[in-house]
Design a protein around this nucleic acid. Structure first.
Lengths: 112, 112
DNA sequence: TCTAATTTTGTCAATTATTGACAAGTTTAA
DNA sequence: TTAAACTTGTCAATAATTGACAAAATTAGA
C-alpha cells in the first residue's frame, strides 16, 4: 500500500529502471524536485497526471483514483476526519452530478 | 442536500436570523466576502471552522464531515473521478493511521 | 413610492503558497 | 576512489488566496 503518491511514483520509476533525471525530463520538471515529490516533500501537480500515465502506460482513470485517493486520505488524516466524511462525499458528488445533469439538460434544451 | 458549503452556511445564518454583517463579524471577515462564500465564489477557510461551530453550537466533528465531504465531492466532480476513489481513500487513511500509530509508539518508546 | 438595510459584485493591493531552478551536499554501487 | 544517482537547502518568480473597500443591486418596511 502506498499512502503517499510520491512512493507510488518511485515504485513505477524504479520498476522501469529509470533515473530521477530521466523521469523528470519526461515530466518536464527538475530532478531535484522530483526527488522531493517522491519523498513526500512536495506535491505532484494534477496537470502532470496525463504525462505520468502516458510514460508508464497507465489507465488515467486508475491513476486518478490513486492520486485523489491519496489526497483525500492525507486531508482526512491531517484533520482527523471520521470515515463518515467519505459517505457524505459520495452523496454529495452524486447530488452534484444529478443536479448538473439536469442543469445541462435545461441549458441545451434536450429535456425529452 | 447542500453540496456547496456556502449554502450550508447561509442556511445556518438565515435560520438564526443573522445578517451577513453580523455573522461576518463573528467569523472575523468582511461581509462582502462572506456573501461570496455563501454564493460559492470563494472558499471558506478551514481555520474558521471552529468559530463557525461555536457560533451555531455545532458539533465540530459533524461540521468537518460536512466541510470536507463537500470539498472532496467538488474535486471528484471537477475531475470526474470514479467512486472507487473514495474506497481507496478509506483504505489509505486507515493505512496512514496504522503506520503512524506504530511510528508514534516507536518514537515515544511505549510499545508495551 | 421612498428609504434604509442588506446583499452582491468588481477590483486590487497585500499576503501567502507553490513552483522552477540551481548549487552543494550525501549516498550508492562499480 | 569516483562517477552517477539522489537529497537537501535556498530563493526568486509565479500563482493563488485573502482582506478591504467602493459601488451597484436587491429587498423589506414605512
Amino acid at each position: 500500500m502506498k499512502a503517499i503518491f510520491g512512493e507510488y511514483i518511485r515504485q513505477l520509476r524504479t520498476d522501469k529502471g529509470l533515473t530521477l533525471t530521466q523521469l523528470a525530463a519526461r515530466l518536464e520538471l527538475d530532478s531535484a524536485n522530483l526527488s522531493k515529490i517522491e519523498n513526500g516533500k512536495r506535491e505532484f501537480d494534477e496537470k502532470r497526471l496525463i504525462k505520468l500515465a502516458s510514460t508508464f502506460n497507465l489507465d488515467i482513470e486508475k491513476l486518478k483514483v490513486e492520486y485523489f485517493g491519496n489526497q483525500f486520505a492525507k486531508k482526512m488524516y491531517e484533520y482527523n476526519c471520521s470515515t463518515e466524511t467519505l459517505i457524505v462525499a459520495e452523496e454529495k458528488v452524486n447530488y452534484l452530478k444529478s443536479t448538473n445533469a439536469k442543469r445541462a439538460q435545461i441549458e441545451f434544451g434536450d429535456e425529452k
